[in-house]
Amino acid sequence: MAIEQEQLAKQKFEKKQSNEIIMQANQIKKYFPIKGGIFKHTVGHIKAVDDISLSIIKGETLGLVGESGSGKSTLGRVLLRLLEPTEGEVLFEGTDISHLNNRKLRKYRKDMQIVFQDPFASLNSKMSVGELIEEPLLVQTSATKSERKQKSIELLEKVGLRANDRAKYPHEFSGGQRQRISIARALALNPKFIICDEPVSALDVSIQAQVLNLMADLQEEFNLTYLFIAHDLSVVKHISDRVAVMYLGRIAELAPKKLLYSNPLHPYTKALLSSVPSTNVREKREKIKLSGDLPSPANPPSGCAFRTRCPMVHDRCGTERPELNEVENGHYVACHLFD
């Protein structure tokens, strides 16, 4: 029995080590124009995502953390092309989807889905749960009415709701239940890749764990790849295989979970991790306090974006933008301290 489990774990590990890239972002930029003046001309840009390159490996969960306004959600939406990237390309299983027209894109929409943060805004309140879950099938497949019904019942049971919830409307459910509906809807088309845009941050802590565990179970069952966006480091630690830390539209550090949490390199990651409350009273930790606020993404600091708040800042940080370099196996960091 124990050996069997060990073998299963090994298989799972190997699957994750397959290194088959499902989604790749190459130098993605997303600038939102700031309109001003009498004629509403562009007077500047909000650099929500500023030159990000990233690969997501099939079967893994990539955690994406960062403060509010750091561009996490924007990056997620650009990857699914719910927003048009200003520059750069997105490869989904090797196909560039960032320049496809809407009709060609529809075929790929089947394979990538999104679960939103706010369970109250992300479901159309005028549609019943059955309609909501069957909508992707109606749009993307030629399944008949009874097939769709069958599938929606299956999905509802899979996410821990009941078949007779089909006839209900979103207002009859709690936040956690609604998030389960969102997940069922995302799963309807058997996607390969799901972006979870802070799916649990609007939920109570007790419900958070339930939903996270559900997502982890579904990942195993359907061999899903997640990009898990969150601002809560403990949530990301629970579910991720690798973690990327974003700061002001850029990736500061990207590493396998264990490496990142045990040996954070970037001063920003260090500060973030030191702010997580510890459950061990005897453990003495130095808390790194960051001064100031997140600078405006309309006018980011020159060179390294973090230099205005960095405790280890030196001359080079103001002049040269640090590249995301690999310092050890799979551990990337964008900081001049590690060049």
């Binding site: 719910l82 929409r109 943060q117 706010d118 909508e135 969102s182």
Partner: peptide, 11 residues
Amino acid sequence: EFVLGARAIGA
């Protein structure tokens, strides 16, 4: 968000 969600399924 539900409109984004509808676009995400390719409606």
